Amino acid sequence: MSYYSIKDVENLSGIKAHTLRVWEQRYDILKPKRTDTNIRYYDDLDLKLILNISVLNKHGHKISHIAQMSAEELRTELIRLTEKSTDAQDKIQAFTLCMMDLDEERFEYLLAQSIKQIGFENTMLRIIFPFLQKIGILWLAGTINPAQEHFISHLIRQKIIVAIDSLKPNYTEGKKYMLFLPEGEWHELSLLFTNYLLRSRKQRTIYLGQTVPLNDLQEAYKIYKPEFLFSVITSSPSFQQIQQYIYEISRHFPESKIILTGSQVIGQGLDTPENVLILAKIEDLLDFIQENA
């Protein structure tokens, strides 16, 4: 069982803390627990109820009516709404519930529905990555069970790999990109999706994957000779080591453009040599691919 502060619940549901307190007092719909020091907190059941309420309320259900609904009625109505909705926030709420319940069947169904409605790329950009950003913040804070995060990340990883495999490989045209994560870096989803974006735009890629030592990267570089190197850095190298790492890869690969993104490099005020580019958002990457195709 995980426990959430009122701020956690606010971030996950989009419902302001003040509104949550009003619902508790006026409709007796929520019954948060309190610590020994009288600090309000919520458990998994509370969070699931709040996520259900937020979607139903957004679609016109009055709180007074929701307060009278059974748990099964809430679930049935939520399924009905999220199946036909194209709203990204509705989908994110539904995926959050799938993660909490470890409900693979429901997640697969909702994801397939979204891909059918808006396509794989838009589903990833508009729904999956905003969803991962939300749960990632809470996972780092220790308010989400790591098993839940691993469960959902694994399912998403499988979907990206299937999408990449469905693309016809391009061996002769397009620019050459080498994709890797630095040694000690394991967060692979953004790198995998970048591989998909590049290949779907007829660029050539070599995917080296997670935790690649610099020496191994150099050896692969000698063989493939890419125009671009791309990496996502979210945890390793550490903040204390990242500037030196940037200098090192710039020096070792002077003839290639090195593209970096991730929380360890975005907005950190790092010095970037001439052949290093830091991209802050996915739209910047899409523009870069188009400009350099």
Rank of each mutant, 00 (worst) to 15 (best):
Q25G: 03
R26Y: 04
R26P: 02
K31Q: 15
R34D: 08
R34P: 01
D36T: 07
T37K: 15
I39K: 10
Y41K: 06
Y41M: 05
D43E: 09
L45Y: 13
D46W: 05
L49I: 00
V55F: 11
V55Y: 05
L56Q: 01
L56C: 04
N57C: 03
N57Q: 11
K58I: 08
H59T: 03
H59Y: 09
G60F: 11
G60V: 09
K62W: 02
I63K: 00
S64T: 02
S64Y: 02
S64W: 01
I66D: 00
Q68W: 00
M69T: 01
A71G: 09
E73W: 02
T76I: 06
E77G: 03
L78D: 05
L78Y: 01
T82Q: 12
E83I: 07
K84R: 04
Q89L: 06
Q89N: 14
D90I: 02
K91T: 07
K91N: 03
Q93M: 12
Q93W: 06
F95E: 00
T96P: 05
T96V: 10
L97V: 14
L97M: 15
M99H: 06
M100P: 03
D101I: 03
L102A: 13
D103C: 06
E104T: 11
R106H: 11
E108A: 14
E108Q: 14
L110I: 09
Q113R: 11
Q117H: 11
Q117M: 13
M124W: 05
M124N: 07
M124G: 06
R126E: 14
R126D: 14
R126Y: 08
R126S: 14
I127F: 10
F129R: 09
P130Y: 09
L132W: 09
K134S: 14
K134Q: 15
G136Q: 10
W139N: 12
L140D: 11
A141I: 01
N145P: 07
N145M: 10
P146A: 10
H150R: 14
F151A: 08
F151E: 02
